[in-house]
């Protein structure tokens, strides 16, 4: 593995048992939330993971950080497989990789002061005594744009955006190399979202962090991500450099998803070639055979139902899982403004 890889996921699978039949009511089905996902996170870069609800992106975040155990597959952090680690090694792994959660209200203990919250990872890891941890907490608060004088206050005294800053400070306490952010701005107002996005970008370049940024908002991901992976029903359908994927999506689902994003200017209204997907995402308990997107795809043929398209590189260098990918220019042209 080359040295510019921060984290690699190889064929990750997470199935949740569900349903019950028979006299004893044993689960007989499973929700295939993550079903064979591989990706590479480059050092110092941001990998955006987008998809609609139920595509498995949040489960993926929890599997990658080992908050839940994968059903199968491997996660390589700095070249070391962390799927089998336990005890001390697992603790070390957790130092290197931290998570930022969606809801800044429920992810902070309301009975702990901000100082206690931010210092908690340090205490858990047994890294610092009381005195030094106070210094560190103030340093972290300054880093994320909070007033260090407020370390004795409680979460309810802060606004939503400030609470998310507290969560970010906590995740940075152990000097991690990898941050997994699960919908970190979707609970925030637009004007506050922009503040948090700017903060994350600044921290990333200052601290050299590698980041997995999970969001349903394609505009936000476009703004922050270097690479982007598009998920549908537990699988990645397309992955590549963000600019390319956004400018010329190769997978029909990516194309439809981008075309569903509301326009940014009323003068673009009624623009040509907007794709409207029909119906809903099928159930992850019983996904369609072959290509999972075929039931909503306007290009689907019998081949799509019979053979699952592998995720493979196109001539243009894009990696896409489709039998009939959209034409993509081999050289990347200027993206439309």
């Amino acid at each position: 593995m080359s040295s510019d890889v921060a984290l690699q996921a190889v064929d990750l699978v997470k199935h949740f048992p569900t349903g019950s039949k028979g006299l004893l009511g044993r689960p007989d089905k499973s929700v295939r939330a993550v079903d064979g996902v591989s990706f590479t996170l480059r050092k110092g870069k941001t990998l955006g993971i987008v998809g609609e609800s139920g595509c498995g992106k949040s489960t993926l975040a929890r599997v990658v950080t080992r908050l839940i155990e994968p059903t199968s597959g491997n996660i390589l952090l700095d070249g070391v497989d962390i799927t089998k680690t336990s005890g001390k090694d697992l603790r070390n792994m957790r130092r290197q990789m931290q998570m930022i959660f969606q809801d800044p209200v429920s992810s902070l203990n309301p009975r702990h002061s901000v100082g206690q919250i931010i210092a908690m990872p340090l205490r858990v890891q047994g890294l610092l005594d009381e005195e030094h941890s106070n210094e560190r907490v103030k340093e972290l608060m300054k880093l994320v744009g909070l007033n260090p004088e407020h370390f004795n206050r409680y979460p309810h005294e802060f606004s939503g955006g400030q609470r998310q800053r507290i969560g970010i400070a906590r995740s940075l306490a152990l000097n991690p190399t990898v941050i997994v952010a699960d919908e970190p701005v979707s609970a925030l107002d637009v004007s506050v979202q922009a503040q948090i996005l700017n903060l994350l970008e600044r921290l990333q370049s200052d601290l050299g962090l590698s980041m997995i940024f999970i969001a349903h908002d394609l505009s936000v991901v476009r703004h922050i991500a270097d690479d982007v992976a598009v998920m549908y029903l537990g699988k990645i359908v397309e992955i590549g450099p963000a600019e390319e994927v956004y400018a010329s999506p190769a997978h029909p689902y990516t194309k439809a998803l981008l075309s569903a994003v509301p326009i940014h200017d009323p003068s673009e209204r009624g623009g040509p070639g907007r794709i409207r997907l029909q119906g809903d995402v099928p159930s992850p308990i019983d996904p369609p055979s072959g290509c999972r997107f075929r039931t909503r795809c306007w290009k689907a043929t019998d081949l799509c139902g019979a053979v699952e398209p592998p995720l493979q590189a196109e001539a243009s260098g894009r990696v896409v899982a489709c039998h009939f990918p959209e034409e993509t220019p081999v050289s990347i042209g200027k993206s439309p403004e």
């Binding site: 922009a194 700017n198 476009r222 940014h264």
Partner: peptide
């Protein structure tokens, strides 16, 4: 300003309204 620059495929600071 907070959202307009999402549309452009460039990184760089978004315009923000300070405070809440």
């Amino acid at each position: 300003g907070s959202v307009a620059s999402y549309g452009a495929n460039k990184r760089g600071d978004l315009y923000t309204i300070s405070g809440s």
